[in-house]
């Protein structure tokens, strides 16, 4: 296949690759969203589907030193790609787990930095996770027929790994002059530092997420109770963290159940929450259920350690009829 035929074929098949890339992106985003993550927070760079331009594809197929493709059109597997950039190594694991567990495609795990580290323990270089995904069967997406041999490259990396990749790709790989060994050395040093920092990030997040509130997913349980009672989605703020922090010792595995029981015994509180939702404050947050519960069951401790002004407790005490200053 000469360059002209190559370009023609690529122009013809671009919509197929685009459709497959769109499907992969949408599917992974849905999977991550369903696991309870907010996509805006989870992905540090909004992921998008990228088709290789004609020029760069031809360049890679015919002029890249060291690459000698026998069937360049099919051998090049990153004609369409999707990149996911996240903050933490554990976020990468989450995406990998989803990709590997999905029945929507067959996957080929062609690169993982953990394997690279084992293989070349003395080398500090580009780190990322790469998958090639292909449809299991011919299928139709948005009116386009996608064949099983259509590859899509998925890259998954941390923000720091991405920063390193950007630097090496743009500044070194495309450098017009020969790169000095000292520069290679400095780039390798920065990768060593990035790997160390990623480990520290993991460590910090782990320590921050240790505790009963996270262990028993109390926030999420309260959100669910709040929503099922009021039919309103809670607007949680940082103040709920401060409250959980102060009264962590009352957070147990049974707490969500206890609060559910408490709310069904005091179902009039649902109307109080709904009618005060617009007045803001604690009423908009699902932690309000925990505060009501403490007001009834642990009033003295609540008042002793309450992290905000007592005025914030007054309206809730009025709803429950609990005397604060008798």
């Amino acid at each position: 296949m000469n360059e002209v035929d190559f370009k023609e074929k690529w122009d013809l098949e671009k919509p197929i690759y685009k459709a497959w890339g769109d499907f992969v992106l949408e599917n992974i985003e849905n999977g991550i969203r369903d696991s309870g993550e907010s996509l805006d927070v989870f992905f540090k760079i909004p992921p998008s589907v990228r088709l290789k331009s004609n020029e760069s594809l031809v360049d890679k197929a015919f002029y890249r030193p060291g690459k000698n493709y026998s069937d360049p059109y099919n051998d090049i597997e990153d004609k369409v790609g999707v990149r996911f950039v996240v903050l933490l190594l554990e976020n990468i694991d989450k995406i990998c787990k989803y990709i590997e567990g999905s029945a929507n495609w067959s996957f080929d795990k062609c690169k993982h930095f953990n394997l690279d580290r084992e293989r070349e323990p003395l080398l500090f270089t580009y780190q990322s996770v790469h998958y090639i995904l292909r449809p299991v069967d011919t299928f139709n997406y948005g009116g386009v027929e996608v064949l099983p041999n259509t590859p899509c490259e998925v890259q998954v990396r941390t923000l720091l790994q991405h920063a390193h990749a950007e630097l090496t790709h743009d500044a070194i790989y495309k450098s017009k002059k020969a790169v000095l060994p000292a520069v290679h050395r400095t780039v390798a040093k920065s990768m060593a530092l990035i790997e160390t920092t990623d480990d520290f990030f993991t460590d910090v997040t782990k320590k921050l997420n240790e505790g009963p509130v996270e262990q028993f997913s109390v926030q999420r349980s309260l959100d669910e109770i709040y929503m099922s009672l009021t039919q309103i989605e809670p607007l949680n703020q940082k103040s709920s963290l401060a409250i959980f922090d102060c009264f962590e010792k009352f957070v147990t595995e049974d707490l969500p159940n206890d609060i559910e029981d408490f709310m069904s015994e005091n179902s009039f509180l649902v109307d109080s929450i709904k009618s005060n939702f617009d007045s803001g404050g604690l009423y908009r947050q699902s932690v309000v259920l925990f505060v009501y519960y403490l007001l009834r069951k642990r009033k003295q401790r609540l008042m002793a350690d309450w992290p905000f002004s007592m005025e914030k407790l007054e309206p809730l005490a009025n709803d429950l009829g609990v005397s604060l200053y008798s």
Partner: peptide
């Protein structure tokens, strides 16, 4: 309401 609650509520 707070005055009434403090006077007659739980724990008063």
């Amino acid at each position: 309401k707070s005055r009434v609650r403090d006077a007659l509520g739980d724990g008063s």
